[in-house]
């Protein structure tokens, strides 16, 4: 029970947040009165079918959208302040790399935007490249890399300013199963080393169960929090965990949330 060992210090607080899109008369409620907390150094997954507002919620935390009502606090600050202080990194479903930049240049982009000097960030990006295992590819262009490698670059880029929070929007859903496994393991390793708070949007139940300390199950139309489930991280190799009874029990537990809804 790793999550209990940690101090349950609140990092992100979602407080009665609602989000309505569209103009008058044709409103679509994406999120309806959502409240929960994310603790420091915790791995939280937002899990749900499409249309449940999980990506919207992530974008609200990132200040890419503003909530119609309700409040989001990160630390003591609102998302806008957090964004301006670059206290989170973000990874999208597509790698979103700049095709005119090499791997190294792509990773250095956030530091460039911040206005750091090349001499300051060159060492940082080198270390990140090693960390995601792309040392041999640092001078390659994105189109010379496979999808998995591109997503590694995106993760390294998100880590480049060493932000305490990592926001990930279905980062592995476009990858094949083998690459996905590798990257999931890498991500857990990175989190263990860096103690990031990670909010991870996914529609894959096993992925959420495998990665998370807690899974926030959401339901659609309108987007709501269905339930919040504590996961137990087990020890052992990937295969051992995936084949363990506990893993299957947790997966079944999560899945049951959706079964109840549909029956």
């Amino acid at each position: 029970m790793l999550s209990l060992d940690r101090q349950r210090e609140t990092e992100i607080r979602i407080d009665d947040v609602s989000m309505v899109f569209g103009r008058k008369g044709r409103e679509v409620t994406a999120l309806s009165h959502v409240s929960f907390e994310v603790y420091r150094s915790e791995f939280v997954s937002l899990l749900g079918p499409s249309g449940c507002g999980k990506s919207t919620l992530l974008r609200l935390m990132a200040d890419l959208l503003e909530p119609t009502s309700g409040q989001i606090t990160i630390g003591e600050e609102v998302p806008r302040e957090v964004r301006l202080k670059r206290k989170f990194g973000i990874v999208f479903q597509s790698p979103t790399l700049f095709e005119w930049r090499t791997v190294k240049d792509n990773i250095e982009l956030p530091m460039e935007v911040l206005g750091l000097k090349k001499s300051e960030y060159s060492a940082i990006s080198e270390r990140l490249i090693d960390m995601v295992g792309l040392t041999k590819f640092k001078h390659h262009y994105p189109w010379q890399l496979s999808g998995g490698m591109q997503q590694r670059v995106a993760i390294a880029r998100a880590l480049s300013l060493d932000p305490p929070i990592l926001l990930m929007d279905e980062p592995f859903s476009a990858l094949d199963e083998f690459t996905k496994e590798k990257l999931q393991l890498d991500l857990l390793d990175i989190q263990r080393q860096t103690k990031k708070t990670i909010v991870f949007v996914t529609h894959s139940i096993p992925e959420a169960v495998f990665l998370s300390d807690r899974v926030i199950v959401m339901s659609a139309h309108p987007g709501r929090v269905h339930s919040i489930l504590d996961m137990e991280r087990e020890e052992g190799s990937y295969e051992q965990i995936r084949n363990s009874t506990r893993f299957h029990e947790m997966t079944a537990q999560v899945r049951s949330c959706f079964l109840i809804r549909s029956s």
Binding site: V132, S146, M149, D176, T179, D186, D189, I241
Partner: peptide, 20 residues
């Protein structure tokens, strides 16, 4: 560590290599 796999290097990542 719940998972004992080391940080993989892309060079011995057959899936990615194949993809490329």
């Amino acid at each position: 560590s719940p998972v004992s796999a080391p940080l993989p290097r892309i060079a011995d990542d057959p899936a990615s290599g194949l993809n490329a």
